[in-house]
Design a protein around this nucleic acid. Structure first.
Length: 479
RNA sequence: GGCGCCGUACCCAAGUGGCUAAGGGAGCAGUCUGCAAAACUGCGAUGCGGCGGUUCGAACCCGCCCGGCGCCUCCA
């Protein structure tokens, strides 16, 4: 039974979608004006994992993730670069897909863009104006928060408290300082669309309301994003949407915690961010390994907790993954005995599956779920000591692949255990060369010529190859 | 000023009222091995930021304090 922590109630609640067996979820994507950083990666990965687990649980998932492609920051960036704003959004949408691909994150069911939903947005603003909860000042349209009694329910704050502490410059045209723009008039040269209020563009929050309701209906199951979106973004979305439809908007609100650097939130304004791009480009590992290391690192923390980013954290993730892939290598080898699957293995696999699901059912507890897989790793290693059939080995590998797929782990066929030295000019050896050296070394060892055997081992080591001798006198090797 | 979050071993990190406080990384010792690597076995918090309280019983609930962070303005 899946339970999800709902920001709205502050409780873990049993998850029941409105339509049985079908989940509709919306996640706030990115504003495309710059490279994405690790914080964006975490959010994207968390919701990808949630989506995959829901699928694993046999829900049909309709997943909508938007691009905000009209916004002040985009306009400013276009001015800075001296290029049309459409060129800015096109560039960073492309960069986003590049990063997501590296992280192993697939496309959402629908990936709507604000600029392609102007009619829906204008229609929604119009509906709000008609209901008397919005007012017009010159070409701008504002939402009047006092007309929405539940305002503040999500972020747990009162209108009065916010007014007292708000350090916002008071816009005299607003009736309440917390009123927010639904529609803004455009200056010449800025992106704009014709509307009943003149040429203008949408406010920040309205697009998500319009696009989520268009693609998922007035009421849908899950709405997610980073914790910093709780206020004002999601609070405002609720106000707009509920005021317009008179119906509940999202049923479960899910928010991920921040990535931090030196105990501080990683953010653009603090300048302490690492872009996904630079992490991949600076990595000493190949792209697929780096992606997996990053996923492991990000998912071995609970999604609601803050996560401290560090090189050490990444290295530890790599070490842990080495342990898994070391086992997978051994599982690839033929078993001594043929015959049926091992009964103890079957039991261990089944126990792990249940514990894994239990962990994930508890508000997507990925760190606990990974711990269960570690337990299976240890269990299979023990069984391997006494011998497992080829079929049993395959069965074990298959289980890691299946459970790991929820988090995008354990899908690789080839892993690298050592640093790749090819960048600094160390020539990699071809597999055949390694094989022949290993064979030569095996001969030497048979002759008890350990000096020669060690020479060969050193030679291979300098070429990034690690030798492991088996009890039967043969050797396996890995890079 | 208002609202909220976090503090578990050297590091990362589950656990949120009741068996000996998961798991990983690092470390140490041992088994195996010609040596090494891997694997396996063992060791490692009488204690969960501190002090009180509630309870038969608390890392988990309550209060106060200390330390750190976030939101209230764009932010995943």
């Amino acid at each position: 039974m899946l339970k999800i922590y709902n920001t709205m109630t502050g409780l873990k609640e049993v998850f029941r979608p409105l339509v049985p067996k079908a989940v509709r979820m919306y996640v706030c994507g990115v504003t495309v004006y710059d490279e994405c950083h690790l914080g964006h990666a975490r959010s994207a990965l968390v919701f990808e994992t949630i989506r995959r687990y829901l699928k694993y649980c046999n829900f049909k998932v309709t997943f909508v993730k938007n691009f905000t492609d009209v916004d002040d920051k985009i306009i400013n960036r276009a001015k800075e670069l001296g290029i049309p704003w459409q060129a800015v959004t096109a560039k960073y949408i492309k960069a986003y897909y590049r990063d997501m691909k590296r992280l192993g994150i697939g496309r959402a069911t629908v990936e709507p863009r604000a600029t392609k939903h102007m009619a829906d947005i204008i229609g929604l603003v119009r509906a709000l104006a008609r209901k008397g909860v919005a007012y017009q000042v010159n070409g701008d349209v504002y939402f009047q928060v006092q007309k929405f009694p539940a305002y503040g329910a999500l972020s747990k704050r009162k209108l009065e408290d916010m007014q007292a502490g708000a350090r916002v410059e008071v816009d005299e045209r607003k009736r309440n300082p917390m009123d927010f723009a639904l529609w803004k008039s455009s200056k010449p040269g800025e992106p704009g669309w014709d509307s009943p209020w003149g040429r203008g563009r949408p406010g920040w929050h309205i697009e998500c309301s319009a696009m989520s309701m268009k693609h998922l209906g007035k009421t849908f199951d899950i709405h997610g994003g980073g914790m910093d979106l709780i206020f004002p973004h999601h609070e405002n979305e609720i106000a707009q949407s509920c005021a317009a439809t008179g119906k509940q908007f999202a049923r479960y609100w899910v928010h991920n915690g921040f990535v931090q650097v030196n105990q501080e939130k990683m953010s653009k304004s603090l300048g302490n961010f690492f872009t996904i791009r630079e992490i991949f480009e600076k990595s000493e590992w190949s792209e697929d390994l780096t992606g997996e290391i990053l996923r492991y690192f990000l998912l071995t923390n609970h999604y609601r907790s803050p996560l401290e980013f560090s090189d050490q954290g990444l290295r530890e993730a790599k070490s842990s993954l080495d342990g898994f892939y070391d086992l997978f290598n051994r599982l690839k080898e033929r078993g001594k005995t043929t015959g049926p699957v091992n009964e103890k293995l079957t039991t261990a696999i089944e126990r792990t599956r249940l514990a894994f699901e239990q962990a994930m059912d508890d508000d997507f507890n990925t760190p606990a779920a990974v711990a269960e897989l570690q337990g299976l790793r240890s269990g299979v290693n023990k069984l391997l000591e006494t011998g497992l059939s080829t079929k049993a080995r395959e069965q074990a590998r298959q289980q890691f692949r299946l459970l790991g797929s929820v988090m995008g782990l354990f899908q690789l066929e080839k892993w690298r255990f050592n640093v790749d030295l090819s960048d600094i000019g160390v020539r990699g050896l071809a597999d055949e060369e390694v094989e022949s050296k290993v064979k030569e070394r095996t001969e030497a060892r048979r002759r008890k010529d350990f000096k020669r055997a060690d020479e060969i081992r050193e030679f291979l080591k300098s070429h990034d190859i690690i030798i492991e001798d088996r009890p039967d006198g043969t050797s396996r090797w890995k890079r």
